[in-house]
Amino acid sequence: DMPHRFKVHNYMSPTFCDHCGSLLWGLVKQGLKCEDCGMNVHHKCREKVANLCGI
Rank of each mutant, 00 (worst) to 15 (best):
H4T: 03
Q30A: 02
G26L: 02
V8I: 11
A50M: 09
N40F: 02
F6L: 09
V49A: 05
K7I: 15
H42K: 05
A50S: 10
E47Y: 09
G38M: 13
S13E: 05
G26Y: 01
M39S: 09
V28W: 05
T15E: 05
M2S: 05
L52G: 13
F16W: 14
G31L: 01
D1P: 03
L24R: 01
D1Y: 04
H19G: 14
G31W: 01
F6D: 02
D18Y: 11
M12N: 05
E35A: 14
D1K: 15
G21I: 08
L27I: 06
C17S: 00
F6W: 06
F16A: 09
I55T: 14
H9A: 11
G38S: 12
V41N: 07
N51R: 03
H42N: 05
K7Q: 12
D1C: 03
V41A: 08
G21P: 11
K44S: 10
M39W: 13
D18E: 12
C37P: 01
G31K: 01
P14K: 04
H19K: 08
G54Q: 08
T15V: 05
H19I: 08
C37F: 00
C17G: 00
P3V: 15
C17D: 00
W25M: 06
G26C: 01
C20F: 00
H19F: 10
G31C: 01
N10A: 03
D18S: 10
V28F: 07
D1W: 02
G26V: 02
T15G: 05
H9T: 14
T15C: 07
H4P: 03
W25S: 04
Y11Q: 03
C37H: 02
C53F: 15
C34M: 00
D18R: 12
K48F: 07
V41S: 10
W25T: 04
V28C: 05
G26E: 03
L52C: 08
V41W: 09
K29T: 12
H42F: 00
W25R: 04
F16R: 10
S13T: 07
D18W: 15
H43A: 08
C20M: 00
N51T: 02
K29F: 08
V8W: 07
M2C: 15
N10G: 06
W25L: 10
L24T: 03
D1Q: 02
C34T: 00
L32M: 13
V8M: 14
P14I: 13
H43I: 06
G21A: 13
S22Y: 05
C45K: 00
N40K: 11
M39K: 08
C53N: 08
E47M: 08
C34I: 00
H4K: 03
F16Q: 10
P3H: 15
C34N: 01
T15K: 08
F6H: 15
H4R: 03
G54L: 07
L52K: 14
V49C: 04
P3S: 15
C17W: 00
C20T: 01
C53P: 14
V49F: 06
F6K: 03
L27R: 02
D1G: 07
R46P: 06
D1E: 08
C45D: 04
F16V: 05
A50H: 05
G38E: 14
G31M: 01
V49H: 13
V41F: 13
F16K: 14
L52A: 08
W25G: 03
D36H: 06
D36L: 06
H43P: 04
S13W: 09
P3M: 15
T15A: 06
M39F: 14
V41H: 02
L27K: 01
L32I: 14
C37L: 01
P3G: 15
S22F: 06
P14H: 04
C45R: 01
V49R: 12
H9C: 09
K33E: 13
L24C: 15
C37E: 01
N51Q: 08
H9F: 15
S22A: 08
S13F: 14
Q30R: 01
F16G: 07
P14Q: 03
C53S: 15
R5D: 15
G21M: 09
Y11I: 03
R5M: 02
K7C: 12
F16D: 06
L52Y: 12
L23C: 06
Y11P: 03
H19S: 12
A50C: 10
G21W: 15
M12T: 05
V8T: 10
P14G: 05
H43S: 09
V28A: 07
E35N: 11
G54N: 12
F16M: 14
S22N: 07
T15Q: 14
M2N: 14
G54A: 12
I55C: 11
D18P: 01
S13N: 10
T15H: 15
A50I: 09
R5F: 14
S13P: 03
E47K: 08
E35P: 09
H43V: 08
K29M: 09
N40C: 10
E47I: 12
M2A: 03
Y11E: 01
L24I: 13
L27F: 14
P14N: 03
M12A: 12
H9P: 03
V8Y: 05
D36E: 11
G21V: 06
C45S: 01
L32D: 11
V28S: 08
M39N: 08
H43L: 09
G38A: 11
F16N: 08
G26S: 02
D36I: 05
H19D: 13
C17P: 01
C34V: 00
F6S: 05
H9K: 15
L32C: 14
D36A: 06
R5H: 15
V28E: 05
N40W: 02
K48C: 08
L27N: 03
K48D: 09
D36F: 05
M12W: 10
C53D: 15
N40P: 04
G31E: 01
G38Y: 08
G31H: 02
N51A: 05
G31V: 01
L27C: 05
L24H: 09
I55Y: 04
K33I: 13
